[in-house]
């Protein structure tokens, strides 16, 4: 369980996150939606213990989060994960040494699934292949929490589809708490259970994905649009 209690992050006068309170329940799949600059990435980095709140608390399993959380949390970040002059297998080897819960067999399975060549250099991989390699690296770990920051950014629809399949195949549903940030919602909507809308550093709406369909007859994308509009009117 991840609890955010009145979390604020301030950079000078600019507030990246404002008084966020929310609880992520264990074993569920969450989507954080919102435009660029809404504070999605900051929120992810905070849960990963890599950015510290200016105000409020973040508790994971009741304990304040720190950099040590990395032992039980896998984080796919938008930048800095891959070393350009490494081969795919060297990246895998490096991750295996850094995280005791890294599973070699799972990495092998994912290598085949993601159609990656272990001898290729990272710098020679296409954007889509790099995205798949990043996913391989985090999905090979056996963690309680999985954070995916913009896993679809810059990828073409075919690759996105593949990544969604990868997620469904390799996430340990019911045990892993998964948080995905994205602004390309369509592909992952069927994977999500809960959706949050972040705008200007605040959670402006949240919903259960199937409930929105059932009660309002809306997809999350449409729900998102109506909520953004309401905001704009206010």
């Amino acid at each position: 369980m991840i609890m955010l209690e009145g979390v604020t992050k301030q950079y000078g006068t600019r507030k990246s996150l404002q008084d966020i309170s929310y609880t992520f329940e264990k074993g569920k799949v969450y989507g954080i939606l919102g435009p660029n600059g809404s504070g999605k990435s900051t929120m992810m980095k905070m849960i990963a213990g890599l950015v510290y709140p200016t105000g409020g608390k973040i508790l994971v399993e009741g304990k304040p989060v720190s950099r040590k959380i990395a032992a039980s949390l896998a984080f796919l970040s938008t930048e800095g994960m891959l070393y350009q002059n490494f081969k795919v297998e060297q990246m895998i080897h490096f991750f295996a040494t850094q995280y005791p819960d890294f599973q070699r067999e799972k990495a092998e399975e994912l290598l085949a699934f993601m159609e990656l060549d272990r001898r290729q250099k990272v710098s020679r991989l296409s954007k889509g292949q790099q995205g798949r390699l990043k996913l391989l690296l985090v999905l090979s770990r056996n963690t309680d929490i999985l954070l995916l920051d913009e896993p679809f950014i810059g990828l073409d629809p075919m690759v996105r589809d593949m990544i969604v399949k990868g997620l469904v195949s390799f996430i340990d549903f019911g045990r892993q708490t998964v948080i995905i940030t994205t602004h390309e919602i369509n592909e992952i909507e069927p994977v999500l259970e809960e959706a949050l809308l972040l705008d200007n550093g605040r959670i402006t709406a949240f919903c259960n994905v199937e409930e929105v369909r059932e009660k309002d007859g809306l997809s999350v994308l449409e729900w998102l649009k109506t909520n953004v509009k309401k905001e704009a009117v206010l």
């Binding site: 799949v29 589809d161 969604v164 399949k165 469904v168 195949s169 549903f173 019911g174 069927p190 994977v191 999500l192 259970e193 199937e210």
Partner: peptide, 14 residues
């Protein structure tokens, strides 16, 4: 079934 349809397994359970 979840993998085939690309959805959350909880959905298939339902």
């Amino acid at each position: 079934m979840a993998i085939q349809s690309g959805v959350n397994p909880n959905t298939i359970q339902r």
